[in-house]
Nucleic acid binder design. Structure first.
Ligand SMILES: [Zn+2]
Ligand SMILES: [Zn+2]
Ligand SMILES: [Zn+2]
Ligand SMILES: [Zn+2]
Lengths: 128, 128
DNA sequence: TTTAAAATCGCAACAATGTTGCATTATTAT
DNA sequence: ATAATAATGCAACATTGTTGCGATTTTAAA
């Protein structure tokens, strides 16, 4: 998986990737740090930056901070192509990547490279 | 305008609001700081926080940092209700609030409180 | 296998932004 | 005018982002 994205395989990167694979939802920097046996802050920073650049993970933006999640689509070093939305639950604070289709946006004259749809509310589980 | 949003009128807040009124697009913290005659970092931080809480301005999220823009809709202390998208131009680095209609999202079981659509690309002006 | 090149890592150092407490000052209502 | 209330300015600290550089590790070549 790392090789496929042209990322050199190292023990630390494998551990970080393993963490992402085990995470159902997007995870914050703190959550990542908590779940690593040991880590260097800067190395982790550069690892995440590289993973993003290579199209392995993508950022999930939120007013209170960033989260990160594996890319499910065909993202690469040139572009992130996501057609899913990010749902932020105000109750459990989780951020989900949900499949959806964003309509064609009527933006004549603009070149659209990437769209990100962020939705805030209460998720299925918390709405029971 | 401040009174309408139940924000106490002070010289500093008036100057910040004036800045927002004069800005066509969303502005970053640095841009705000650059355009104030003098400022205290913490007071500015709290002013922006208050303006957001009271529904006077809204955050415009971007991977490289936040920007802020006046709310054009009927936002208040309870909720921000935006139906526009944020276009981030990779050329001029400006962030525009553009009017659009977001389709009904097929999210059965979820409670939707707020949606934010962020689009990255090249704006009209830079695409000439 | 040995060696050289290239990339990664770990640390220091610093920048930017976010956040709280508290004493002082300004605003508002009585 | 006075008292209550809120805003301000400062110190202090937390979090995250970012770069440089030497040491270490990985990869490729000889
Ligand atoms: Zn992606
Ligand atoms: Zn996602
Ligand atoms: Zn708003
Ligand atoms: Zn906007």
């Amino acid at each position: 998986m790392l090789e496929k994205k042209q990322i050199r395989k190292t023990p630390f990167r494998q551990e970080v990737l393993k963490l992402f694979k085990a995470s159902k939802n997007a995870i914050s920097l703190k959550e990542i740090e908590r779940n690593l046996t040991s880590f260097d802050r800067i190395t982790l920073y550069r690892t995440l930056k590289l993973f993003i650049e290579k199209g392995l993970i993508h950022e999930v933006l939120h007013s209170s901070g960033k989260k990160y999640a594996l890319c499910k689509e065909q993202c690469d070093e040139h572009q992130h192509q996501h057609n899913h939305l990010h749902f932020h639950c105000s109750s459990c604070k989780e951020s989900f990547c949900l499949k959806t289709h964003i309509q064609d946006l009527n933006l004549t004259g603009y070149i659209i490279e990437q769209t990100d749809l962020s939705v805030h509310g209460v998720c299925k589980k918390c709405n029971n």
